[in-house]
């Protein structure tokens, strides 16, 4: 049974697309056939992060409007055989999405894929609503600062009330917190909310904490999902998060201020 995962946040720029790319790639690395769908119509970025921007011919909107078939629009990842991307349209806007069309495309994807990752746009309007509407699992990406936490809280409210599962009275969407851009030094200085603060306010399970990392920017610019950079702290943190998503118990790392010792560098942080 295919699982639909929405990666959402409310606030923009917190790392939804980076996380969608990393988690989608991580699932594919672990042998699950996965597709990542970009719902950010008009401001498409996923193709860049995934490094497939030069191969986009047809997009999600073309499929919704029956201007192309799904197999024409799905872009196969160059690195992994079981990973696909469905790009958003750059020329249209969110109004080009409609519930019936999205439902049809998702139904079709469900036949073929184990995991469907919906990369939500920021905001709470049509695009974000449709990205979350059909979800089974939600990954709420949050930065450790108050406005991001507030927006995530709002999104959690919408997940609990405006999704298909909520409307049909089914079991609620499984909610996970993914804390990104975490900087333990700044937390220690009191400049950033701590993991505990955010967990307390949002009261949902913690899927992972991704440290603020140069590797993320580098990966984005190169079009390589950061999870493939297994030397980087962010890559390892995403890897742990994917394992947790698949039900493994993995201890959280990168939560404490690290001494910049050579040995610790070599052994990849604590423990």
């Amino acid at each position: 049974m295919a699982q639909i995962i929405v990666v959402t946040s409310g606030k923009g720029g917190v790392g939804k697309t980076t996380s969608s790319a990393a988690i989608g790639t991580g699932l594919a690395l672990r042998g699950h056939k996965t597709v990542i769908v970009d719902f950010d119509v008009g401001l498409r970025n996923l193709d860049l992060i995934m490094g497939c921007e030069r191969r986009v011919v047809y997009d999600f909107i073309n499929v919704i409007h029956n201007e192309a078939t799904l197999s024409q629009a799905l872009i196969k990842d160059k690195r992994l055989d079981n990973l696909y991307v469905l790009a958003a349209s750059q020329t249209r806007d969110k109004e080009a999405l409609n519930k019936e069309g999205v439902a049809r495309v998702i139904e079709e994807l469900k036949k073929d894929f184990e995991y469907i990752i919906c990369d939500s746009p920021a905001g709470i309007e049509t695009g974000a609503h449709l990205a979350m509407y059909f979800a089974d699992i939600a990954i709420v990406v949050t930065n450790p600062e108050v406005s991001s936490v507030r927006d995530s809280d709002r999104i959690l409210g919408l997940l609990a009330s405006k999704s298909q599962r909520a409307e049909k009275g089914e079991e609620p969407i499984k909610e996970h917190l993914l804390l990104t851009r975490y900087n333990p030094e700044r937390v220690a200085r009191g400049e950033m909310l701590s993991v505990d603060d955010v967990e307390e306010i949002l009261s949902i399970g913690l899927l992972g904490v991704i440290p603020e990392s140069q590797a993320v920017l580098k990966a984005s610019n190169q079009g390589v999902p950061v999870i493939l950079d297994d030397q980087s702290d962010a890559g390892q943190a995403y890897s742990d998060a994917v394992d947790r998503l698949l039900g493994k118990e993995v201890k959280h790392r990168f939560l404490e201020v690290q001494k910049k010792g050579l040995l610790q560098r070599l052994f990849g942080g604590r423990e």
Partner: peptide, 8 residues
């Protein structure tokens, strides 16, 4: 019994 979120 479930959390009441901002905006609700």
């Amino acid at each position: 019994t479930r959390p009441v979120r901002g905006g609700q």
